[in-house]
Nucleic acid binder design. Structure first.
Lengths: 297, 297
DNA sequence: TCCGTTCTGTAGTAAAATTACATAAAACTA
DNA sequence: TAGTTTTATGTAATTTTACTACAGAACGGA
């Protein structure tokens, strides 16, 4: 008897993105099952409208093999497999379709970038460390002041964060300039929070900031793209994995995923705040909307 | 005989989001079909793992009625219906599940914000005006200089755009300060491009910028959230519709959609550039990556 | 009330998914 | 290397599921 997926832990949406699962499990599959895996990966859309028999023909195996394949990758049966496949395919097939070509017209570029962004967000979603998130929220909710640090694209994220957090009564700053960063970091103390943003996590000066802030007793949270050197200088590391590859035309998805994480943090922190602060926030929002209408130069 | 969905126009992704279709068609359905529609809308997830018989039981109708329902909403059969439903459900049911509650724990908040962001992006994707996109790319590709204007959250988008575009040999600026904006707009002339970003599109001062820049002969592109007053002062209006509602805890999705549009524009413009510029871009990227490693304070 | 149309359920049929079993291939042991 | 156990794959039977034909019921208009 061969491995059967544990039936208990599959409830609402445990094994998301069956295509990823197939790809990672491909190596350890039976030879015939691999044939099935290959036809599925090659043209998943075709399988959606196919029966067991048709799929068996495509893969040049027998019908039970197709069933066994479905079982092997953790599905209850062929129907269940098709449902899961359909859900994975809702974004379009990530890797295959999203590669930008020199010859693409603007509409295709738009489609691909949207697809790619959504797929990457989904990836980031499923790879986000929930424990770290919890811890970061705890720290931020109890912060006296928060300083956001970042360069380049990460600087944008820092700037965005600085716009959102003060709304709930916590004084914040965003430091985008290298010298300014050192100065501010040196002045931090117990009760302050340094929020360090760096996609690569290897930039020397930003690591230095984390080190200084921590040495001064501040809590340090980092938001980075992989388990980088920066993480070891921080109390909490929020690692936002994305599918970014180095292709010239691939846009920088990392900042978008980072912005979503900022949304999550600011929202969660806001929900912990006393009601009076929330009222003040509403007030602010109304004033801003008034200003928009009357403001002259 | 009753209406049958036209079979020819259903190919890859014509009838997207079957749930929306059901909701809109609900009124004109047969009485028994409506019973089926209701159980589907109430708990779509449950139908995914159900057979025709089970669905019939849930809706308290006969099995053929379930089949006729599937046909009525434009599916080829029950199987096809389930596949379509699964695809619609991949994001999670937007309206229902994505509403943030006071009682949500951080993990749920994270899930909901990711879901909501992805759903909104998908919405923006399908509502983006392709003709306007085309036109904007044409203008940007031939620009001598580009100035990005924006306040608040839109200022971040402007800042981001300013970081991406110069890479391809076009000098750019980002103006986030009101006075600075007026000054720069006043100095623009034929051949320059003013890229005005405002989610609401109603902020007076930003409309003024568009007016001034245009009066001076500059081409004006706006990136806004709806068909706003601002659009009438521009040569091209890129309208990025999002699902933003005014709920306190709903994060500002508009800036994320705007950033994706910036990605699309910059990528498309880059692809029109001569190869020498693309080489220069690669060079720059390498130098940046070198700097990251050696840079000390 | 009668006739025609539109719904909806019963019962039957075709087709698909799943299981049981047997044979072939591979791996392991002596 | 021969024999034995284990694993992998196909054939054929069985069950389940999706779909169709038909007939009775409900509704609407004259």
């Amino acid at each position: 008897m061969h491995r059967e997926a544990d039936d208990n832990e599959r409830e609402t949406r445990s094994g998301r993105n069956i295509i990823e699962i197939i790809r990672t499990m491909r190596a350890e599959l039976r030879k015939s099952d691999r044939k099935v895996a290959d036809v599925v990966l090659k043209d998943p859309q075709r399988i959606l409208n196919a029966t067991v028999g048709e799929t068996a023909t495509f893969a040049e195996v027998s019908q039970p093999t197709v069933l066994r394949f479905a079982m092997a990758i953790g599905c209850k049966g062929f129907q269940d497999f098709k449902i899961r496949l359909a859900q994975s395919l809702a974004f379009g097939t990530p890797a295959t379709h999203s590669v930008l070509l020199e010859t693409d017209d603007p509409e295709t570029v738009a489609e691909k970038i949207f697809e790619y962004t959504m797929t990457s967000l989904d990836w980031a979603r499923s790879h986000l460390d929930r424990a770290a998130l919890h811890k970061a929220i705890d720290i931020l909710a109890n912060a006296r002041t928060i300083e956001f640090f970042g360069f380049g694209a990460s600087g944008i994220v820092a700037h965005d964060a600085q716009q959102k957090f003060p709304l709930f009564g916590v004084p914040c700053g965003a430091q985008l300039d290298s010298h300014q960063q050192i100065m501010i970091a040196s002045m931090m103390k117990q009760g302050d929070v340094a929020f360090v943003i760096s996609n690569t996590g290897t930039t020397r000066s930003i690591i230095e900031i984390a080190r200084i802030a921590r040495a001064n007793g501040a809590a340090v949270i980092c938001l980075t793209g992989s388990d980088s050197p920066l993480a070891s200088y921080c109390d909490v590391a929020l690692i936002v994995e994305t599918l970014e590859n180095t292709n010239m035309y691939t846009p920088t998805i990392s900042r978008i995923a980072a912005l979503v994480v900022i949304d999550i943090l600011s929202t969660s922190v806001a929900m912990r705040r006393p009601l009076e602060d929330q009222a003040r926030f509403h007030n602010m929002k109304r004033q801003l909307s008034d200003m928009r209408k009357v403001q002259t130069i």
